[in-house]
Amino acid sequence: MPRKILIYTLLVCLAVLMGTPLAWMVLSSVKPNSDLFSYPPVWLPSRITLEHYQHAFRAAPFARYFANSTLISTATVIVNCLFCSLAGYAFAKYEFRGRDLLFYALISTMMIPFHVILIPVFIIAKRFPLTGGNNIFGAGGIGLLDSYPGLMLIHLMNAFGVFLMRQFFFSIPDDLLDSARIDGASEFGIYWKIVMPLAKPALGTLAIFTFTGVWDDFLWPLVIITSEDMRTVQLGLQVFQSQYSIQWGPLMAATFAVTLPLILVFVMGQRHFVEGIATSGMKN
């Protein structure tokens, strides 16, 4: 019993430490301006107001931004799960020439900051053939700029995903695959019908990693999006920062509003999420 009390005390203390900044955000979002910056700080609002939320949703079409972010994040997750699992499976379960070299080359791409490849990637996106008015040589139009595929482009595959899936597939016994081969299953059939169903938890983890990454991205959407109705949530939040000042109340309100769905996803999915990583062979 005393052990339980000790654990709860620790949990509560840590939760207070960890939760305070965000509690402040939520409280700030419903405080009138007069309460926001008083010193010493006032914790509870003198009256609860929704004016910041009204202001925020008037300033920018957050519903639309939210739909954009959700759409591209979800689509990216699907592509990622497919490509990364295919590659991860090959790297884990096949012997082929150049395997390790390819794998490490892939992993090392993570170590270059995005800023220095931004311009080349931007030009490739702009010159992408047969899209956005471009001809087969990638000239004439804007390519993938200002489009959903463009937004997804740089996230379609990530080396980390391949790494994660490879780790997971190590834990699948070779015997299982061999017996399927003896039964006459094709290599792709084995991957699709035997391996993939087993990989669900790991795919779930990859999905959450990818989703968060795309959702949080700021610089790439900033440079390729030009139409207002293509903006993502992160770009939308910029509306509240101008050169010299921050619109504190609306920023807090909008941030809370766009974070809430992610929180709900985590609350609902946290069990599976954790199981996903647990089985994905992080144990090597």
């Binding site: 311009i119 931007f122 702009k126 804007i142 440079v223 030009t226 910029q238 920062q241 050169q243």
Partner: peptide, 21 residues
């Protein structure tokens, strides 16, 4: 008309000029 946050004007303009858009 597109509205750009001041702080991000520089990367956005530079990429656009470099990319010809």
């Amino acid at each position: 008309v597109e509205f750009i946050p001041w702080g991000e004007l520089s990367p956005k303009l530079l990429t656009a000029f470099a990319g010809g858009v």
